[in-house]
Simulated assay, not measured.
Amino acid sequence: MSIERARSIQQPIEHQPKKQVQVKVQKKQWISTGEKALYSLATGVVILASVFMVQFTSSTDTLNRDIQKMEQQISQQESQNDNLAYEAKELSNPDRILQIAKENGLEMQNAEVKQAGLVGN
């Protein structure tokens, strides 16, 4: 090959403008769309579970308070019943009954005094 021919081949190559091709570079997403959906779903489930747990704890606490109030009322009523039973027993004492009878002018015919509950014996 001759030198001139080689130069003629090289010159058009050197003088040819370079074509610039624009290439779109797709950036890789850090989190894919499917992962976003899964994370959103998991977050929603966690939030719903938390709300349910708080609601359940609140209703349990309210129920426990109601139970404590009822137990306190039952205790007070039992105490009042015991006091009334003791007072009824005290008021039904035969000596007391005889004393009230004498104060009101009643006379005792028999020397034996029996309680009403023991009459059948």
Score class of each variant (00 low, 15 high):
residue 116 A to S: 13
residue 55 Q to D: 02
residue 107 E to W: 01
residue 25 V to C: 06
residue 120 G to I: 13
residue 95 D to N: 13
residue 82 D to T: 01
residue 56 F to V: 09
residue 121 N to F: 03
residue 40 S to H: 14
residue 10 Q to A: 14
residue 3 I to F: 03
residue 77 Q to T: 06
residue 110 N to Y: 06
residue 92 S to C: 10
residue 76 Q to F: 00
residue 91 L to E: 14
residue 80 Q to S: 10
residue 27 K to R: 07
residue 46 V to S: 03
residue 12 P to F: 09
residue 21 V to S: 04
residue 78 E to A: 12
residue 58 S to A: 14
residue 69 K to F: 00
residue 1 M to F: 03
residue 83 N to C: 02
residue 121 N to A: 11
residue 23 V to I: 13
residue 7 R to K: 14
residue 94 P to D: 08
residue 115 Q to A: 10
residue 69 K to S: 02
residue 95 D to S: 11
residue 48 L to A: 02
residue 40 S to G: 15
residue 100 I to H: 05
residue 65 R to H: 07
residue 66 D to G: 13
residue 39 Y to R: 15
residue 76 Q to W: 02
residue 113 V to G: 02
residue 99 Q to F: 04
residue 73 Q to L: 11
residue 54 V to Q: 02
residue 26 Q to H: 08
residue 52 F to W: 03
residue 107 E to S: 15
residue 14 E to F: 01
residue 14 E to R: 11
residue 20 Q to A: 09
residue 96 R to P: 00
residue 29 Q to P: 09
residue 69 K to G: 04
residue 65 R to L: 05
residue 8 S to F: 04
residue 66 D to Q: 15
residue 9 I to M: 12
residue 57 T to H: 03
residue 34 G to F: 00
residue 119 V to R: 15
residue 114 K to V: 15
residue 80 Q to L: 08
residue 25 V to Q: 11
residue 112 E to L: 15
residue 103 E to L: 11
residue 118 L to R: 14
residue 119 V to M: 15
residue 79 S to D: 01
residue 46 V to P: 00
